[in-house]
Simulated scan of single mutants.
Amino acid sequence: MALRLPSEIVVERFLPTARAMLATELHDRGFTQKEVAERLGLTQAAVSKYLRGDVTVEERFAEDERMVATVETIAEGFADGSMDGYEALAELLDLVRAFEDRGPICAVHEEEMPALEGLGCDLCVRGTDDAVLAEREALAAVRRGARRVASEPAMAEHVPNVGTNVGTAVPDAADATDVAAVPGRLQAVNGRIMVPADPEFGASQRVAETIRAAMAVDPDVRGALNLATSEALLDAARERGIDPFEFDADYDDRGERLRAGFRERGGVPRVAYHGGAFGIEPVAYVFGATATEAAALAVDLAESARTE
């Protein structure tokens, strides 16, 4: 597998797209090809190619509203004389930095270097510090957990109507953006569980809230997933010596109420559940040190529930 730097994506994909869009925008505003060439530091022949569409444009960049807005800002600044080349360069560099941080440059980079898939290009943007390594581990745990759940046929009947999510928090998670989960949730379709996307941070408010409540009582419990509450599932837990913890279904102050309940209980249970309420589906949470561990227990419970 070839090593690819994000700067190569910038040169080969971003720059031609930005130039093509700027050339078109300036020409539409009445600039001659010569004037466009002077503004963009190109030859007139190169501008002619851009205007004819003889260059490959990366649609993920061209269709991004941030790119469109930046191109319009620069073109307007050039047109009314309020922006010079230095300021235009600053606008483009800001856009590149935004696109490299879990943006479309990152997406293209991951395609061309699959080893980066699902990592949000943190390695490229922030380096290999401890925080980045913790994020990579959390993302990997969620990927493994989601695959484990999706690979077990018995799990499909335990997916609630709202879907299942699998989450892992980084140590000292401050809010939902520090908890990795699956965007769009796992859904049961025709007896199979579909995983719609790679994990991302901030992808699940409810699972994140539940994990952070657990971490407040036991920092080593950083993983969880949600399932549909059923007597079969709860009985399977009890057979393993797990005493499921019941909590109120109301969403208001749920995190605080879970913290208080866990503290009163003396620790975080492996299974916590509620019986639902008006407009709220009954849901059970399975906890573990990571999403991988939580998923393993959930699969074990589901298999036992199926045989009962």
Rank of each mutant, 00 (worst) to 15 (best):
A214T: 15
M215N: 02
M215A: 15
M215Y: 09
A216F: 01
A216D: 00
A216N: 03
A216G: 11
A216T: 07
V217Q: 10
V217D: 07
D218V: 03
D218S: 13
D218W: 08
D218N: 01
D218K: 08
D218G: 13
P219S: 06
P219N: 14
P219I: 12
P219R: 15
P219V: 15
P219G: 14
P219M: 07
D220M: 06
D220I: 00
D220W: 13
V221A: 11
V221C: 06
V221G: 10
R222H: 04
R222D: 00
R222A: 03
G223T: 05
G223N: 05
G223H: 01
L225C: 08
L225H: 03
L225Y: 01
N226S: 06
N226A: 14
N226M: 01
L227A: 09
L227N: 12
L227M: 08
A228N: 07
A228M: 09
T229W: 04
T229P: 05
T229S: 12
T229Y: 10
S230P: 10
S230D: 07
S230Q: 14
E231M: 12
E231K: 13
E231A: 15
E231G: 13
E231I: 08
E231L: 01
E231S: 14
E231N: 14
A232N: 11
A232V: 10
L233R: 11
L233W: 11
L233K: 04
L233Y: 10
L234I: 03
L234G: 01
L234M: 03
L234E: 01
L234C: 04
D235E: 09
D235S: 10
D235L: 03
D235N: 04
D235P: 00
D235I: 00
D235W: 02
A236C: 02
A236T: 07
A236G: 12
A237F: 01
A237Y: 09
R238G: 06
R238D: 04
R238N: 04
R240L: 14
R240M: 13
G241A: 08
G241R: 09
G241M: 06
G241V: 06
I242S: 15
I242W: 13
I242T: 15
I242C: 12
I242A: 13
I242D: 12
I242V: 14
D243V: 02
D243K: 11
D243P: 03
P244M: 11
P244D: 02
P244F: 00
F245R: 00
F245G: 00
F245M: 03
F245A: 00
F245N: 01
E246W: 12
E246F: 01
E246Y: 02
E246L: 12
F247C: 08
F247A: 03
F247E: 04
F247R: 07
F247M: 04
F247I: 06
